[in-house]
């Protein structure tokens, strides 16, 4: 077996071996069934490549991400600021109006600052009631000095969500589902598969050769 670099897609077997394979192929009937030696049609090869790129693109976790506690940190800071607290404690207004007004103030204030969380905030809007419930937990975490991006907000709870991207020495590699060793393994898996199958089929007689089925059948 030798790879001819000038003709990389050509058969990998010697002429003698090819001749033996051809004789075998044409001279034997397997239960009355014969096999042709056609290649994959070109459009189907395109479809297979498209499948691979789609597989990588569609599985990548750009979708369905959960809200981290970090995106609400600014909400909490503003909630605990004096003007907002005044509105919330203003008993002259009904409860709902106070909430709405306070939330409007917070959102207005946030709109004036650039933040890397703007997109996620739009994805995961929060109500004043829920904010009030999670606020003390976020403050507590901030006091403890942890990275809020490792925590997610699940209903009324703020929960540590980073389990599998931490090295034994405590180094954090990633905080959300992102590129991980699963994708690395998947890339190698596909490459090794392609090489093996190409070598396997390249050892067959070239696909330009058509077996003559009239010999054994």
């Amino acid at each position: 077996m030798a790879w001819t670099l000038r003709r990389p897609l050509h058969t990998l077997t010697t002429e003698d071996e090819n001749q033996r394979a051809k004789d075998l192929w044409e001279g034997e009937s397997l239960g009355g069934i014969a096999e042709n030696n056609n290649p994959l049609p070109r459009p189907v090869i395109g479809l297979l490549l498209l499948t691979y790129f789609t597989a990588m693109a569609i599985t990548f976790p750009l979708y369905g991400q959960r809200p981290t506690a970090a995106i609400y940190a600014d909400y909490v800071a503003l909630l605990n600021s004096e003007p907002v607290q005044e509105v919330i404690n203003d008993t002259s207004l009904p409860y709902n109006e106070r909430n709405d007004k306070a939330m409007a103030m917070i959102e207005d204030a946030l709109a004036h600052f650039d933040s890397k969380y703007t997109f996620q905030r739009e994805q995961h809007p929060i109500s004043m009631d829920q904010l009030k419930i999670i606020a003390p937990q976020i403050v507590e975490l901030q006091t403890a000095g942890v990275d809020l991006e490792e925590y997610i907000v699940v209903g009324p709870e703020v929960i540590k969500s980073n389990f599998f991207n931490i090295q034994p020495d405590g180094t954090v590699i990633a905080k959300q589902p992102w590129w991980d060793k699963g994708y690395t393994v998947a890339c190698w898996w596909f490459i090794v598969f392609c090489l093996s199958v190409i070598i396997a089929v390249k050892r067959l007689p070239p696909f330009t050769w058509r077996p003559d089925h009239s010999i054994a059948h």
Partner: peptide, 13 residues
């Protein structure tokens, strides 16, 4: 793995 060479096929499998 050439045509109908099953030993190598079994190893690959």
């Amino acid at each position: 793995m050439a045509f109908r060479e099953y030993k190598i096929g079994c190893w690959m499998f």
